[in-house]
Amino acid sequence: MQSRVLVCAYFAVNTGDDLFLKVLFDRYPNVKWDLLTANRNYIKIFKEYKNVQILYTYREVKIGAKYYNIFFKLNDLILNFKKYDALINIGGSIFMQGSSWKKKLKERNYLVTKFKEMNKKIFIIGANFGPFNDEEFIQSYRELFKKCDDICFRDSESFNLFKELENVRLAPDIVFGLKSNERSEGKEKIAGFSIINLKNRKGLKDYYHLYNNKIIELAKNYLSKGYRVKLFSFCENEGDLNIIQDIESEINNQNIEIVNYKGDIDSFLEKFKSCEVILGTRFHSIILALKNRQKVVPIIYSEKTYNVLKDLNMQNDCHYIKDISTLNFDEVNLKSDFQNSILHQNIERESEIHFKEIDNFFGDSIGGGNFEEKFTICN
């Protein structure tokens, strides 16, 4: 009988999170996946996968003075999650202490408790933990994690917070294991910029103009050196495209191309891979550049990026947004020219450690086989 799994993720047409899903679906082609979202974009994004469907019932409706989640109510009253063999929560920054974190925790705890009561498997993979403000947040999730069968973090900072739990493990970011077609030709004379919108980001909006102006300055420098420039929007829903359009209009050069991710994963990856150098702000722009052996300058907007680069011994090759005004073109060329020699040759294999327990659950005929426990990049 075909296994059926309920999938929780960040369904916002965000490049990094959609790559997580692609890796998951490609690894287990014989599993039926139900995506816990009502976002209709995901019908188009994964239309080639006949074993993937979204749940139209996953939405809130108001009855009287209260709001109810239809999907949860149907399962409480009728389905009781009986059709599922497992619950997988896959994502990167999915454990952040925002203003509504208790509501999100309550929803997660509901699902985990239901699956636990029915003796069904619960997996969390690919994540980092934080940022957080207090011990209550950590302790609340520690209690949740105790109910899960397996949790695999992508950085040692997150792992160390919960390493006393026997079900917690560590592996490099899942996207390092992305299977993609290799280009036979070399990189073109293109500088790629992954850009985020700082306008409404807490703690970063004060750097909005400094960041934008520095991107404009660096792009103009590359254009003056005979490069073409590609501006990559990794998540339109989070404002990437809006700020990119503003920046492009300021530069006003015919050798600039805007590449906006709208769910066309393969096309986006090919355009990204064509660049000789990447100035990456988005987390997964850096991961992809490392994977592609592209020259890369990481521009850090979140500690999650620094923590992963620290695990790779690359913490000295990055630049924080708060110090963006000091970044100059000569420094960019110097920092980008190490050609990723720091990368461990087995990092792609090590990233598959995220799936170790899922492979064991589905069986070797579906998964990727046996793994060693050790995450050697951190040593």
Rank of each mutant, 00 (worst) to 15 (best):
residue 291 K to E: 15
residue 231 L to E: 06
residue 289 A to E: 04
residue 303 E to A: 09
residue 299 I to R: 04
residue 220 K to V: 08
residue 306 Y to Q: 08
residue 301 Y to F: 06
residue 198 L to T: 01
residue 251 I to R: 03
residue 249 S to E: 14
residue 300 I to N: 04
residue 258 I to V: 15
residue 230 K to R: 13
residue 249 S to W: 00
residue 298 P to R: 06
residue 248 E to R: 14
residue 218 L to W: 00
residue 297 V to E: 04
residue 278 I to S: 09
residue 223 L to C: 11
residue 226 G to E: 10
residue 291 K to L: 15
residue 305 T to D: 00
residue 253 N to T: 01
residue 226 G to H: 05
residue 308 V to C: 03
residue 206 D to I: 14
residue 209 H to C: 00
residue 274 S to G: 05
residue 213 N to E: 14
residue 207 Y to Q: 05
residue 298 P to L: 09
residue 273 K to Y: 07
residue 255 N to F: 11
residue 239 G to P: 01
residue 274 S to R: 08
residue 307 N to I: 00
residue 249 S to D: 05
residue 262 K to C: 10
residue 240 D to T: 12
residue 232 F to T: 04
residue 254 Q to K: 15
residue 202 K to E: 11
residue 229 V to S: 08
residue 220 K to R: 14
residue 215 I to Q: 00
residue 237 N to V: 03
residue 291 K to H: 15
residue 203 G to Y: 05
residue 248 E to F: 05
residue 223 L to G: 12
residue 229 V to G: 04
residue 262 K to P: 03
residue 281 T to A: 05
residue 261 Y to H: 14
residue 213 N to M: 05
residue 265 I to L: 15
residue 208 Y to T: 03
residue 302 S to I: 01
residue 256 I to Y: 09
residue 223 L to F: 10
residue 217 E to P: 02
residue 255 N to M: 06
